[in-house]
């Protein structure tokens, strides 16, 4: 699918010390740069998400460097111990220089 759109599924609230699961998905072609255009025979330039970072209140909690072998629409899931209330920020970096981001608040009781 052509449209790049980030999605998040993370709890809005958690108990202190609880292990929470965060799921993220971005729709992206993840063009490897190794394929050829069937008509012209020319290489299709690489365009992938090359880095994914999850921050909590500005501090990095999870990050991934992606390479060309990762399939389309990369999905990441990770767990974190909920210590305090704050805000998640998820950032995806595209080869074309664009970044996509999404935020999600967390209230810890």
């Amino acid at each position: 699918m052509a449209n790049t759109k980030p999605r998040i599924k993370a709890p809005k609230s958690a108990k202190q010390g609880e292990i929470i699961t965060i799921k993220t998905l971005i729709s992206h072609v993840m063009e490897t740069g190794l394929r050829k255009d069937k008509k012209t025979g020319e290489l299709i330039p690489r365009q992938i998400i090359n880095k994914f970072t999850a921050k909590f209140d500005g501090a990095e909690v999870f990050s991934v460097n992606l390479d060309a072998a990762i399939s389309a629409n990369p999905y990441f899931q990770f767990t974190m111990k909920a210590e305090k209330s704050g805000e998640f920020e998820f950032i995806w970096q595209d080869d074309n220089g664009e970044t996509y981001s999404k935020k999600s608040p967390l209230t810890v009781s």
Binding site: K9, L25, N73, Y75
Partner: peptide, 10 residues
């Protein structure tokens, strides 16, 4: 989980 189901992109 519909979130994980890639079919939901379509």
């Amino acid at each position: 989980d519909d979130f994980e189901n890639p079919g939901f992109l379509w």
